[in-house]
């Protein structure tokens, strides 16, 4: 395959960035999107140009490192798929592809396609846990958890923290991310004691980080590689309201 790539290049967070166009030949349809970028980088190095920096690690769709806007869509055209799991057979020969970083105030660009997503970590640090010290747990089967609850908790817990939901949202809202963590713990008996406090703290931190409000456009759900449902946002709002009422 032959491709024309338009890639965002930016030297560091203070520098001005811009799109640069590259021609890439000999791409195999069996390559993953990141392997295609590897190939581009090899060519750039050969030509004496600095390679394009992008985040990645597992390349299995689970670590949440990879993060690209591909033709304006977070993680590209395939549903339920991270960038690292996207394959070039999805594109046609001769295609032009636009590749940009996540765009959100809370995720500043560090270089090229790499952004700083530490705001997500700080939201979890504010309350996204069950307070239980090592060693103080009762027997694991002491409290039965209905299978349906365990399954629903797992659906929400599948979030990989990639930030696609924020990147795709016009308001850069992090509600899908925060809602997923709250829904995960709220469905389990272990999460009950701190349920309202957790919602309050995480939502406050989310606001402090500069994430926007949710206006129900549902774009986050559409791009989420783990198919987290927007129903977690409604549940989050309920818990948050209760926490402030009482």
């Amino acid at each position: 395959m032959r491709l024309t790539l338009h890639v965002w290049r930016q030297a560091n967070s203070a520098a001005r960035g811009g799109m640069v166009t590259y021609q890439l030949d000999d791409v195999s349809p069996d390559e993953s999107f990141l392997e295609m970028l590897d190939k581009l980088n090899e060519q750039l190095i050969e030509r004496g140009e600095e390679p394009v920096a992008f985040d990645h690690d597992c390349r299995e769709g689970i670590c949440g490192s990879c993060s690209l806007m591909i033709d304006g869509i977070a993680h590209g055209p395939d549903a339920a798929t991270t960038t690292c799991q996207l394959h070039m057979r999805r594109f046609r020969d001769g295609a032009e592809i636009y590749i940009e970083p996540w765009r959100a105030k809370a995720f500043p660009v560090l270089r090229d396609l790499i952004t700083d997503r530490s705001a997500f970590d700080r939201v979890i640090q504010a309350g996204g846990y069950v307070s239980v010290n090592t060693g103080s747990a009762p027997d694991a089967n002491a409290v039965p958890v209905p299978k349906a609850d365990a399954d629903a908790a797992m659906d929400a817990a599948a979030c990989i923290g990639c930030g696609a939901c924020v990147a795709t949202c016009k308001n850069a809202s992090a509600m899908l991310f925060v809602g997923a963590k709250l829904a995960h713990l709220a469905r389990l008996p272990q999460g009950q004691a701190e349920r309202r406090m957790r919602a309050k703290r995480m939502v406050e931190q989310m606001d402090a980080e500069g994430f926007g409000a949710c206006t129900n456009q549902l774009e986050c759900e559409a791009v989420c590689p783990k198919e987290i449902r927007v129903s977690v946002i409604a549940a989050m709002n309920r818990d948050f309201l209760r926490s402030s009422v009482f």
Binding site: Y129, A137, K147, A150, A157
Partner: peptide, 22 residues
């Protein structure tokens, strides 16, 4: 043996049977 107890207490959503046990 303790590891599983600890993880469940943290909210790790292990697979369950219909009776609610692991």
């Amino acid at each position: 043996v303790q590891i599983i107890d600890q993880c469940v207490a943290q909210g790790v959503p292990f697979a369950r049977e219909y009776g609610g046990h692991l």
